[in-house]
């Protein structure tokens, strides 16, 4: 197929381009995806994906609905294991050189290191406090002082502390949509992962809440590697360092965000970012 050859070439080329390092340092590669084919039952969802993601950077996955960007994201912490009939037919994902699908890799340990924030905010019907420490509790942490410290640190990290510090023991379901989503982020950073996956975290939020979450992403970048799937091109442009464009299960182009938006190497990418389809 022509598009597939056309798609891999600019992507690999784009990968050679030094990234727009915000803090002036050269980024290291954290995640390598190689020749990755993924199936839902008999239906192939991802075709030969090759991608290298940088450490302590924000990478955005963009593309029209059903292009496989969320699927790829969920492969990174093996959430797809939970769906019936999924299989990896070829290739693999390595995080710092460790194949996450290797036999002796424990998906639970993996998920402790690779956190995830979902499209629809899903705080548990527990108090805010219990929500944040949930991850630590299941790891068996009981030290009250330590838990308190983590709660404050995480909520501050998620820019929620000032809003909820007086009602930590009220239900997390009582918060507004944006607050709920930030609570979910706080919950995720409480287990101190290295990577945070965000699956359209702002799609259900109003513009003000969205702005807050985007601001937060900017802050979080200092400590975490963030991969964000988004429908909104503005969002990708605003908060990511690199952007990968997917179409029909294939990686079309991967480059610095600026390159993608200002000077895309592929006509399909150009068509998408300029709003002609998708």
């Amino acid at each position: 197929m022509e598009t597939s050859s056309a798609s891999s070439t600019p992507a690999s080329r784009a990968f050679q381009v030094p990234s727009r390092a915000t803090d002036g340092q050269k980024a290291q590669t954290l995640i390598e995806i190689e020749n990755f084919d993924f199936y839902y039952g008999a239906k192939q969802a991802l075709f030969d994906i090759n991608l290298k993601l940088d450490d302590k950077r924000v990478t955005a996955f963009i593309g029209p609905s059903g292009c496989g960007k969320s699927t790829l994201l969920r492969c990174l912490n093996r959430m797809n294991d939970l769906i019936d009939g999924t299989s990896i037919k070829r290739g693999g994902i390595k995080i710092r050189g460790v194949d996450v699908n290797a036999r002796d890799v424990d998906s639970i340990e993996l998920r402790k290191r690779v956190g995830m924030v979902f499209q629809k905010s899903n705080p548990f019907p527990k108090s805010i406090y219990e929500n944040v420490i949930y991850g630590l509790r299941i790891q068996g942490e009981t030290n009250k002082a330590k838990l308190d410290a983590v709660v404050e640190k995480s909520l501050r990290g998620a820019a929620l502390w000032d809003e909820v510090k007086d009602r930590l023991h009220e239900s997390g379901l009582g918060l507004s949509g944006g607050q709920q989503q930030r609570l979910c982020i706080a919950r995720t950073i409480a287990v101190s992962p290295e990577i945070i996956l965000m699956d359209e975290p702002c799609s259900a939020l109003d513009p003000i809440a969205t702005a807050k979450v985007e601001e937060l992403i900017h802050e979080l970048k200092k400590e975490f590697t963030i991969i964000i799937v988004t429908h909104s091109m503005q969002q990708a442009a605003r908060c990511s360092d690199k952007t990968a464009f997917f179409y029909m299960g294939k990686l079309i182009e991967y480059a610095d965000t600026r390159t993608i938006f200002m000077n895309p190497g592929n006509p399909q990418t150009e068509a998408y970012v300029s709003g002609r389809f998708g």
Partner: peptide
């Protein structure tokens, strides 16, 4: 479903998820 996914994404085992969440 979010209760389960949220819990699993935090590194809980399946049984922990079921029992607690």
């Amino acid at each position: 479903k979010g209760f389960r996914e949220g819990s699993l994404a935090l590194g809980a085992t399946k049984w922990q998820t079921i029992r607690k969440n």
